[in-house]
Simulated assay, not measured.
Amino acid sequence: MTTPIADSADLPTMTPLTALICPLDAQPLTRDGQSWCCVDGHRFDIARQGHVNLLPVQRKRSLDPGDSKAMVVARQRLFALGGYLPLAEALARRVVESVDTPLGGASLGVLDAGCGEGYYLRQLAHAAGQEGIILEAAGLDISKHAVLAAARQSRDAAWLVGTNAALPLEDDCVDVVICAFGFPVWQEFARVLKPGGRVVLLEAGAEHLLALRKILYRELKPARGEAGLSAAEAAGFTSESDVEHLYAGLSLASNEQIRDLLTMTPHLYRAEREGLARAEALSELEVELHAELRVFTSAIAQDKT
């Protein structure tokens, strides 16, 4: 089963977010042919596939930051199995339910912060489109390979190579930030959110890929718990409701699929050699996906009025 994607010329569900700023001097960017330019003369060319690189060299921690091409390709194959679809649908549902937007041709400004291959943003666009809501959307990731893969699948959003630590977006320009299995930077999220805006966060739960982790590690690390939310609170965010626990199953029917799961996660680089050998010797594996879904409102965003 594959993810339903509604990127259609007849029924568009996304339009590109254009409130971009220069990553070098924070000046507004304007479209000039096949480039985005600021008044100080900085120019960022739009790639043939439609995405734009707004990650300056001085903000890179390595020559090729973020997910590698192999990780991106492996993740695309795993997503095509359909196991992650219930998680993406739940995130989309929470976004649609959380906004007070009139139906019928309304638009909603959305940033997917850490968009990867665009899987969750495209699913959100599909769900919003069924409610008559068109997304004015941007997907941003530090991995050029992930953004390229996203742009190849849909030209309806603004696909940006960039960092959550310094979002190349204007202040108060989006209604919702989604962050799925990513690295939230709460101060930046608060800056780009409109008054009353929300962050919809999807993170790995304590039982996520537990069967795989038991094979890889002799000792499992304890769950992070609520400690990871302190940064959100420090940035002025409050949780709208209790955490929603999401569970889904993923059946891996070949050694190649197990290898893809290892490749798309950090476990390939963190696990002990003996654990990797045990996992790579398997020909099938049943794993459980466990995610925690939360919606946050920024008090700072509300105070902007």
Rank of each mutant, 00 (worst) to 15 (best):
A137R: 03
G196Y: 05
Q130D: 08
K69D: 13
E274Y: 03
R213L: 08
L148G: 00
G105D: 14
E131P: 03
Y84M: 12
R94K: 03
T305K: 02
P23G: 09
H208S: 02
E131G: 10
A6Y: 13
S98L: 08
R270G: 05
S154K: 02
E240N: 15
G236P: 14
K214L: 10
E117C: 07
G132L: 11
A150L: 05
N255A: 14
E131D: 12
G275S: 06
L289D: 10
L20Q: 05
G104L: 09
D156V: 05
L63M: 04
L268G: 02
P56Q: 07
I134G: 10
D25F: 09
E284W: 09
L276S: 00
A151N: 00
A137P: 08
G118T: 08
L160W: 02
G66C: 08
D25T: 02
C37Y: 00
I215S: 03
L169K: 07
T2G: 14
T163S: 15
L246S: 10
G275H: 05
L111T: 02
A19E: 11
D172Y: 11
P266F: 14
I21M: 06
N255Y: 08
Q76L: 09
H290R: 04
F189G: 06
N255C: 11
L216Q: 05
E244Q: 15
G236H: 15
Q27V: 01
K69L: 09
E256R: 13
G50P: 10
G114R: 02
L148S: 07
E89V: 13
V161E: 10
Q76N: 06
G196N: 06
A151K: 02
K69G: 08
D242T: 12
L216I: 12
V72D: 05
A271F: 12
A125S: 10
L250P: 05
R43I: 03
Y269L: 15
A9F: 12
G41Q: 01
E274R: 04
E136N: 12
E288F: 10
A235C: 07
Q76P: 01
R224Q: 08
T305V: 04
G249F: 05
